[in-house]
């Protein structure tokens, strides 16, 4: 068994265990941390496969986005500042555990890639083409149609999000700068001349 295969089994089993944790842990914050670990382990697998750009994108986009989600969860669960601080300490052990596993994975990855002798499988990459360049070329040639359709799917997401959330409320006072600057005194103030009247009512 080569060392790469060993590393793959390590990353894959961490990913599977962490994924199980996502759906079985009762505490939502623990579940989110577990999800971060899942993504991270998958990114490590991708790095083993020489997909550097995809792996980094996964970490930046998903782990980053999930961290934001994590923040939302914390914000929604504990609104008070003191409680948030308490939550921080309470969740610290799990956070540290996740961070330690991540560190372990990173060290393993660095070790494996340093020890590796076999050239990358793809001939273009073996010839020194950068990973991201290869990806870009594939996306705009062989996979142009799926790429464009994926863009359409994102457009649908955009249209749907606007259609489902934009509400035109009645009675909301909008500020219309053009109308404001066009206002004249005679539009706003009306001088009415009224005949003076004597108060005929008897005083009581």
């Amino acid at each position: 068994m080569s060392i790469e295969l060993l590393a793959f089994y390590l990353f894959a089993s961490v990913a599977v265990v962490a994924a199980l944790g996502v759906i079985s842990l009762r505490n939502p914050v623990h579940a989110v941390l577990s999800l971060v670990l899942t993504f991270f382990s998958i990114a490590c697998v991708w790095l083993l496969l020489d997909a550097e750009f995809l792996a980094l994108a996964l970490v930046v986009v998903y782990v980053g986005a999930v961290m934001v989600l994590f923040l939302f969860v914390v914000m929604m669960l504990d609104i008070k500042v003191a409680a948030t601080r308490e939550g921080f300490i309470r969740f610290l052990p799990v956070g540290i555990a996740v961070a330690l596993v991540m560190l372990l994975e990173m060290l393993a990855l660095i070790g494996v890639r340093a020890m590796r002798v076999a050239p990358p499988a793809d001939p273009a990459i073996a010839n020194g083409m950068a990973n991201i360049q290869w990806l870009g070329q594939a996306l705009y040639t062989r996979f142009l149609l799926p790429f464009e359709v994926a863009a359409l799917i994102l457009t649908v997401g955009l249209v749907a999000a606007v259609a489902l959330t934009l509400r035109r409320r009645e009675g909301v006072r909008h500020q219309d700068a053009a109308r404001q600057s066009q206002a004249r005194a005679r539009d706003r103030v009306r001088l009415v001349s009224m005949p003076a009247e004597r108060n005929e009512e008897p005083r009581s």
Partner: peptide
Amino acid sequence: LIMIYLGLELLTLSSYALVALNR
């Protein structure tokens, strides 16, 4: 396979939004 998946997603994603359209 990839076009089958993407075509399907385009269809279903639009359908989800349509179902929720009566807010």
